[in-house]
């Protein structure tokens, strides 16, 4: 089960072409899953691989629109991860309008285990989009590295 979860996390986003930075595309059935998958994608890029842990963090936020909400959500995860030395592998997200509540789970950062990643400096608004394709939500976002 553990391995499967991990595999799902790794397969849930794809890296698109971008010369200087990292541009990814995430696809999910619901908006909540899209946010959750995006969080996992960010962590996978930063730390190479992620695996489940039992540390929990709770975040709540409001934004003007859904684009600002994803930008602020990912920026907040980046912040907590860096200052608390945590690597998140899961995010249970609830969204009502432009309000978000999320419970994050993860494990402590380990230099030995999490050395395969790249430092993300920020979540860019450039070309940040959330759209619908058939039954899926699609997110495209650029991480400055």
């Amino acid at each position: 089960m553990r391995l499967r979860k991990n595999l799902i996390a790794l397969m849930s986003f794809e890296e698109l072409e971008h010369t200087a930075d990292i541009r990814i595309r995430v696809e999910a059935a619901t908006l909540e899953e899209l946010f959750s998958e995006a969080a996992q994608a960010l962590m996978t890029i930063m730390y190479g691989s992620i695996s489940p842990g039992n540390i929990r963090r709770h975040v709540e936020m409001d934004a003007d629109d859904i684009i600002s909400l994803i930008q602020e959500f990912l920026s907040e995860i980046l912040f907590i991860s860096e200052v608390e030395d945590l690597v998140f592998s899961g995010a249970e997200v609830r969204i009502a309008g432009n309000n978000l509540i999320a419970d994050l789970t993860g494990e402590p950062f380990s230099k030995m285990k999490h050395l395969g990643g790249r430092e993300v400096k920020g979540i860019s608004y450039s070309d940040l989009s959330i759209g619908r394709e058939r039954d899926s939500y699609i997110l495209e976002v650029i991480f400055d590295v």
Binding site: H18, T19, A20, D21, S124, Y125, S126, D127, I142, D144
Partner: peptide, 9 residues
């Protein structure tokens, strides 16, 4: 010059 975000690099 190359493709960045906001301004070009």
């Amino acid at each position: 010059i190359h493709w960045g975000y906001g301004f070009p690099i």
